[in-house]
């Protein structure tokens, strides 16, 4: 497209010297001052003028039907968009990571009482295999709460992959003896007004798990009341609490398998 489409701007290709030589007005100014910064200023003003002339509606109306202009414009927009997004992504990545870490910190604080630990739990974790427990991940990161170097509780995220309308992501804190300290739902897609009672902001159903363990409830009791278990279902929504209870049960079993290595690291 070059020369025909951009009669002025292409001087940039030839370089400063050539542009100076070709433009009498600039040459005159350059001669007069002999100061590089003024050359650049004059050159800048010149190109600014060129750009303005190029951007005039009349000029653009002539250019628009041309295939090379269309190709260039599409490529230009794509380039601009990707540069903009790339720069934004790079410049905000660390901030977003920090925000996510804060989120995790807050979730951990929800299920592990502050009095139980004096360490930075985000930095103190073990990774254990969890593929056999159907909790949404091949490996689970377990954060350790330590007081004076002794593990008092553990905390990990897990998932009920089979909720009514998608995965239910949860986080659970367990003390070193296997009793639940707290469970929270981090995100889910259950029906608003029915299944979303698993959230602590909407109902206190999830608080019923505090103090439960594999020891004080039999496997049969780890179910909703409709299935002969210990936990309430919701009116109009049975699947959501059923799958949540089952996932929490599986989470406890995962902890039990690794209990020894987790509490005596």
């Amino acid at each position: 497209m070059g020369l025909r489409a951009l009669p002025y701007a292409t001087y940039a290709d030839i370089g400063f010297i050539a542009a100076l030589e070709r433009q009498p007005s600039i040459r005159k100014q350059a001669m007069k001052h002999h100061i590089p910064i003024d050359h650049l200023k004059a050159l800048g003003a010149h190109y600014w003028g060129c750009l303005q002339r190029w951007l005039e509606p009349g000029n653009l109306a002539n250019l628009r039907p041309k295939l090379e202009f269309q190709t260039g414009i599409l490529a230009g927009f794509a380039l601009l968009a990707s540069v903009l997004l790339g720069v934004t992504n790079c410049s905000t990545e660390s901030t977003i990571q920090q925000r996510l870490a804060e989120d995790l910190q807050n979730s951990l604080a929800e299920v592990i009482p502050a009095g139980l630990h004096d360490n930075d739990m985000l930095q103190d974790f073990r990774t254990i295999p969890s593929a056999n427990y159907n909790i949404g991940a091949e490996e689970t990161v377990v954060y350790l709460a330590k007081k004076s170097g002794i593990v008092t509780a553990v905390c990990f995220k897990f998932t009920a992959p089979d909720g009514y309308s998608g995965a239910i992501n949860m986080i659970m804190g367990i003390d070193r003896d296997g009793n639940i300290l707290g469970v929270r739902v981090l995100s889910h897609k259950e029906t608003p007004g029915l299944g979303d009672k698993i959230e602590v902001t909407k109902s206190n159903w999830i608080l019923n798990f505090v103090g439960r363990s594999l020891d004080n409830l039999t496997p049969a009791q780890w179910a909703v009341k409709k299935d002969g278990g210990e936990f309430d279902q919701f009116a109009g929504a049975t699947i959501t609490p059923r799958k949540s209870v089952q996932a929490i049960h599986r989470g406890l079993q995962l902890f039990k398998e690794h209990q020894a290595e987790l509490i005596n690291p």
């Binding site: 903009l84 997004l85 934004t88 992504n89 905000t92 901030t95 977003i96 925000r99 804060e102 989120d103």
Partner: peptide, 12 residues
Amino acid sequence: TLVDILMNAWAH
């Protein structure tokens, strides 16, 4: 996408 990223970072 821009709004999405910026909001995630600055209005979390």
